[in-house]
Design a protein around this nucleic acid. Structure first.
Lengths: 222, 222
DNA sequence: CATTGATCAATGATCGATCATATTGCTCCC
DNA sequence: GGGAGCAATATGATCGATCATTGATCAATG
């Protein structure tokens, strides 16, 4: 969404404010605007993001922009220093690599918690995995990524620990995977075969399943 | 800190703005004010926290209060709905119990990553643990809690994964432990003996150490 | 020529006021 | 009585303006 259409989109949003998930407010929209700017290369890593410049450009005030930047700080997409504003975080390979052990650890825990309940969900997981295989065949990379992550999200949510889910979501896997693909030309994975092995382990409630999931996640790591 | 002394304290802070770690800004101070209000029982769980009321009381404007509330939302201490403001999160036993598996999983991962380097830090850990034992003898519960958590923090930081550290810190262990002690009269632990066992495992780089740490953390759980 | 201090522009931090929404309480009609 | 409007109020969301800090520039000084 370019700046030109921002106000129009805002109006549309106000009119359709029925879905609570969309009633997210200005700052969420500005956040998406900035995210797109970063992924599209409008701001280079390390470059400053000036609150008032964005505010003027979008025809909003400084407040919501500020709020959006704080949210992006929590996603580790920008960093900011007191009284010196925000800049795009100059993420290195090392930054990207740090995600995998954390994610692997969380998902191992998730699998441990979810194991008794996972057997009942293997059907859903298999439907998922079938769609992943289709996406891989048709070469739809974004869809492949989404479905692959959804598989893991399903496991995490089955654990039934809301904090765990929230921490896992805060890693922003989709965002960082997209950035990683775009900025580092990382090879895309076609993991539906590995997922199938995991699903079988879930089905028989294999006590090794958490470790298998852990190792599977670590194999994404560069 | 009561509201009466807030402005005076603020002035004092402005004058001594030399330490960069203290130059945290208004919202951080307001955040602490609200945290103290919650721990002291000024706001009951579930009660609304009205932005403008706090702003008026502290002689500041709505903005920084809003920002403070967003930070507390990230700590899961308050929850907020769009257009309907913030309220103290009515944390249940279940909420508190959800922390332990997440923390245990993170620390197991930390220990795995830190294992090669932990042997070099056992001296520091032992000094820590000695002080913990002293605090336990003298019955200084808050100090006992701080030192005990610091032991774990040391392990997490030794892993050398900044994301892991940041995620672990975001759990707000000190805060939630304090609240748990205050609100639920949970029994306090004297864990320096268990810590000693862990330190020995670190010293010999026992591959079982990560699992031992995991189980140790889970034993805190209610 | 390096260093120090003054000045200024840029911009983050904060403020006071206004707009928009949710809630409350009241009226009126069935 | 009781529910469907409807006004009044409380308060979150946003705005436009001001204050305060930072970093750059440059002159004065040793």
């Amino acid at each position: 969404m370019g700046a030109a259409g921002f106000r129009a989109a805002l109006y549309h949003w106000r009119v359709n404010a029925s879905d609570p998930l969309l009633r997210t407010g200005l700052s969420a929209q500005i956040r998406e605007f900035i995210v797109e700017g970063i992924t599209a290369g409008r701001w280079e890593p390390g470059e400053r993001i000036v609150e008032r410049r964005i505010a003027t450009e979008l025809g909003v005030s400084q407040g919501p922009v500020r709020e959006a930047l704080r949210q992006l700080e929590a996603l580790r997409l920008v960093e900011s220093l007191p009284n010196r504003g925000a800049r795009v975080r100059p993420f290195t390979e090392e930054d990207l690599g740090e995600i995998f052990p954390v994610r692997a650890g969380l998902e191992r825990t998730a699998a441990e918690l979810a194991l008794p309940r996972l057997a009942a969900r293997v059907d859903a997981l298999e439907r998922h995995n079938r769609r992943l295989a289709e996406a891989a065949e048709s070469g739809d990379l974004p869809e492949q990524m989404r479905l692959s992550i959804d598989f893991h999200r399903e496991v995490v949510e089955t654990a039934g620990n809301r904090l765990l889910t929230s921490v896992w979501e805060s890693l922003g896997i989709e965002l960082w995977t997209t950035l990683s693909l775009r900025l580092h030309q990382t090879e895309i994975y076609s993991k539906s075969a590995e997922h199938a092995v995991l699903i079988e382990a879930f089905r028989r409630q294999d006590p090794e399943a958490p470790r298998m999931l852990h190792d599977h996640v670590m194999n994404y790591a560069p």
